[in-house]
Design a protein around this nucleic acid. Structure first.
Lengths: 231, 231
DNA sequence: TCAAAAGTGTTTTATATACACCCATGT
DNA sequence: ACATGGGTGTATATAAAACACTTTTGA
């Protein structure tokens, strides 16, 4: 390992793929920012920015999310680091990509209050993106689809209290296939990870469904004892 | 996204966790380099180094592997990017970690020919490592254990032609549990991914086992049609 | 002839899948 | 009364797990 001072350094940024589930519209969305400066001025891009010397990568991602989209508390996970030579036309920039999961309905307003133009786009109807952000988004989607099946991260896309119907819809959207309702309920409830809040939906034009909550603590305990979440 | 020139930049390195399987000793090993300069002079560390402006991250990893360990052709996959503020005592350094899988027996000599001291260590008997390399190694092991079950990467740890016994031993070592021989063979052969080379082991003091080869092409075709590898 | 690993099927158990009707609520 | 999603159980098919003896080879 040579000493560091002699070499020019690539710049380092982070980028965030923020997924939000629209429970009503039954649609998976991504938050994008419209760039107000070149390069790619006016084009849509992932929220992100340069890593500062006094913050970790994750802190940087959280700060950028807060600054650019107003999003505060989210599930955040590192995705992949992209280092192609020409991914930024200005200079050599390596970016550490993260993906975040939020409940869209709670963050619908936050995005629009910011100075920069931020908006939710359906993953099935995306505009052209700046830099290599399409590639990053694709990788994030792949990760989400893979991980949602064997880690209980899907709950992060729902409100704290949700119905089994909403949970099933979530999986159907992310996995892009229909699931059998009875089998799904049997499997999920059989894991014993949801607590019945005792409350039900309100103001719905049909039989009100029970509201459940994901028991994070119970999951961690079971996991230690070898339990594997799987949908 | 601000312009880049104004800000100080973290340095960027890559580090590689090179796994090698010792089929004879039935042991999973990692290649380490003894540092010849401070910091951590004399301590063992993962092979790695600074990312140059004219190479991608993967190219950098391959170059460092070649230069420091003599290893040429390997399975290489990005693991995770580590960005803690104090992981290098000198200055802010972010490192992109990769892990590599090689057949140890083919690379046993290569390591020792290099100027720097490189050596294989059993993962169950490791020295203290420089920087946060213990943490990186741990993450690599976790990834390997997880991924080996649902992607056919284990073959990268074996010679091109191998016996079913060796393959099973591999899984038993990595997964740290015994597998039933008949069930294992049934499952693996049932996938129809191994081609019988028609040859058998030589110079073994017991019944010579058939030598098989992994059919990469067939795997890719099956994968497209929805097939999932799983052990 | 002994040691050491190779090779081989069947039965049992657990898990996944397929499938249809009644219920509660608001309009 | 009707439209909409909520809620429930059983039978069948598929996959995983348990299990023991014979074969081949070199020492």
């Amino acid at each position: 390992m040579p000493t560091t001072y002699e070499y020019p350094r690539p710049s380092l940024t982070i980028d965030c793929v923020v997924f939000g589930l629209d429970v009503e519209e039954k649609d998976l969305k991504v938050m994008l920012i419209q760039r107000d400066i070149p390069p790619f001025q006016g084009q849509w891009a992932l929220p992100g920015g340069f890593v500062r010397m006094d913050e970790t990568l994750e802190e940087c991602a959280l700060r950028e999310l807060r600054e650019e989209t107003g999003i505060q508390k989210v599930y955040l996970e590192q995705l992949y680091t992209f280092g192609n030579l020409k991914r930024d036309p200005r200079e050599r920039v390596v970016t550490v990509a993260y993906y975040a999961l939020v409940n869209l309905n709670e963050h619908r307003i936050a995005a629009s209050t910011d100075a920069r133009k931020a908006a939710w786009f359906s993953v099935s109807d995306l505009p052209r993106l700046a830099f290599d952000h399409e590639q990053i988004l694709e990788a994030a989607l792949r990760r989400l689809k893979g991980k949602v099946r064997y880690e209980p991260i899907g709950f992060e896309l729902l409100p704290k209290r949700f119905t089994l119907g909403q949970l099933q819809t979530l999986y159907e959207i992310v996995l892009e296939r229909k699931l059998d309702r009875r089998n799904f309920r049997k499997k999920i409830l059989g894991m014993d990870l949801l607590t019945d809040t005792g409350e039900v939906q309100e103001d719905v034009a049909h039989r009100a469904a029970k509201l459940y909550q994901f028991d994070e603590r119970k999951y961690r305990q079971l996991k230690k004892r070898g339990f594997n979440f799987e949908v």
